[in-house]
């Protein structure tokens, strides 16, 4: 196991109002089995020993399921290896590499400190319609409610979204279409989500527009950066569902 010596170019910013800047740090003797966040932990320990402010970054479960960790690594959210930053291992890098570490950038994600951004905007999209109003009870018995296998698979794939915001951060237009479409598709595909489908689509899209995200230009950067492999098929489905929902609203099919 060879240990790595790296040069880090890290975005430092004291608070939302402060002027941010790139600072250079040496990451010495990093074991290649360490995760990216563990590498930052090692660097931070050294910074604390030197009496400096440690680098602030978001993290929680560190097993790739919570969606809390972020970091744009060399210009690509989560480093572009189809895993979350916490699951990105230092063996992906070579000794002597220079690594640029920046926050998830978008106007809709205000920066809080260093590499930590406020991703409440995504929660606001969910709050607008990413739910079902009816009581669905506890998990039903298997096959109690027939759902086609393909439909169930598509809904499950969409539901795999952990809401980390990498789609927004990777998008050249900071569009939240992949997130919104995955969250809408997940419910729209299943029987429990059918009654409120049109209402949900309109509410979520309008909320997304109001929050200052950009507009999708079909570059599919989001799909490539997504650590959960969410497909842009969901975006095509949302476009389709939005047209249907607008037509339904125009003729008053639902209030």
């Amino acid at each position: 196991m060879a240990n790595l010596n790296l040069t880090l170019k890290v975005w430092r910013q004291e608070n939302a109002q402060a002027q941010g800047r790139i600072e250079t740090y040496k990451a010495k003797n990093i074991p290649d089995e360490a995760s990216f966040l563990e590498m930052l932990d090692i660097v931070n320990e050294e910074l604390v020993h030197e009496g400096k402010e440690p680098i602030v970054f978001d993290h929680d479960c560190r097993e790739g399921i919570c969606g809390m960790c972020s970091l744009t690594i060399n210009g690509v959210p989560h480093g572009g290896k189809k895993v979350t930053t916490c699951q990105l291992h230092m063996r992906q890098f070579k000794d002597g590499d220079t690594i640029w570490i920046e926050p998830f950038r978008a106007q809709a994600f205000p920066l809080l400190r260093d590499l930590m951004v406020d991703r409440t905007a995504l929660d606001n999209i969910i709050a607008a319609g990413g739910f079902v109003d009816i009581r669905t009870g506890s998990a039903p018995n298997a096959n109690n409610m027939p759902v086609r296998k393909k439909t169930a698979d598509a809904a499950f794939d969409a539901a795999a979204c952990v809401g980390c915001g990498a789609c927004v951060a990777s998008c050249k237009n900071s569009s939240a279409m992949l997130f919104t479409s995955a969250k809408a598709a997940h419910l729209n595909l299943l029987p429990q989500g059918q009654p409120e489908k049109n209402k949900r689509v309109l509410a979520m899209v309008r909320q997304m527009d109001a929050l200052g995200f950009g507009n999708c230009t079909n570059q599919y950067e989001c799909e490539a950066a997504c650590p959960k492999g969410i497909s842009v098929d969901n975006i095509a489905k949302l476009n389709r569902d939005y047209m249907i929902a607008c037509a339904a609203e125009a003729v008053g099919v639902f209030a």
Binding site: K9, W11, G80, S170, K172, S174, G212, F213, Q219, E221
Partner: peptide, 14 residues
């Protein structure tokens, strides 16, 4: 207007 520039830009497949 929705975007903030990165210091180091990266592109995967655009």
């Amino acid at each position: 207007n929705a975007r903030t520039q990165y210091q180091k830009e990266g592109t995967l497949k655009a």
